[in-house]
């Protein structure tokens, strides 16, 4: 565990909590892509199946349970409790265009051709692109609430910190996971355009709105 990995995990946790609180406090999930949240619930479910087979540490187990629990709670709030506020008309990204190729790729490129390992690989590839329905929704409506942009910022920051963590682990531990690194780089690149808008607009007190 190094400082980049830890702050990455905490940044990820912050993103998840910010989103839950935003929906809970405003009693509304307007502007939030339910599809991205379902994809993240799938990511955590398929990745953390090793909760049943391997014990790594109390930290590892607790964080996994918190991530899974929060992601299901978020999906529940969007599709059940505050369903009336869900903006389904703007959440039109075709998720099968992500899930099917990602599923195929995880069968073809993995560390080990075993069920748990293929599901882990699937989760890594899926996480890299799971935010696309949310970014697509923002590009469609042309704007995002400031609190939603904070959520996206922490979610992107988490992966950027993980990249530094992997450089660190490569130099100091000789650790190198090509699948996680390539997917992590792709995932971080997807946030670059958003990071630019976040720094140039949101941090200067303006609402994130895209030119028509």
């Amino acid at each position: 565990m190094n400082i980049f990995r830890l702050t990455g995990d905490l940044s990820h946790l912050a993103a998840i909590i910010i989103l839950l609180l935003k929906i809970w406090k405003s009693r509304s999930c307007a502007g939030i892509s339910g599809k991205s949240q379902i994809l993240f619930a799938m990511v955590f479910t398929t990745r953390y199946l090793d909760l049943l087979t391997a014990y790594i540490s109390l930290y590892n187990t607790s964080m996994k349970i918190i991530y899974i629990g929060c992601s299901y709670a978020t999906v529940y709030l969007i599709y059940a409790k505050f369903k009336a506020t869900y903006d389904g008309n703007h959440d039109t990204f075709r998720v099968e265009f992500l899930v099917v190729p990602v599923g195929g790729l995880s069968f073809l490129v993995n560390h080990d051709f075993s069920p748990l390992e293929i599901l882990w690989t699937f989760s890594i590839y899926l996480e890299a692109v799971a935010i696309l329905p949310q970014l697509f929704m923002i590009s469609k409506t042309g704007e995002a609430e400031t609190i939603t942009t904070h959520y996206l910022f922490f979610l992107g920051l988490y992966r950027a910190l993980y990249l530094i963590n992997w450089v660190w682990r490569f130099y100091f531990e000789g650790f190198f996971d090509m699948i996680a690194i390539v997917a992590g780089v792709v995932q971080t690149i997807l946030y670059c355009d958003f990071f630019y808008l976040y720094v140039t607009k949101v941090l200067k007190g303006k609402k994130l709105s895209l030119p028509a």
């Binding site: 990995r5 990745r47 087979t53 790594i56 540490s57 590892n60 964080m63 882990w120 993980y162």
Partner: peptide, 10 residues
């Protein structure tokens, strides 16, 4: 290998 891989990251 036949041993399951240990993924210690989240």
């Amino acid at each position: 290998g036949t041993e399951p891989l240990n993924h210690d990251e989240l």
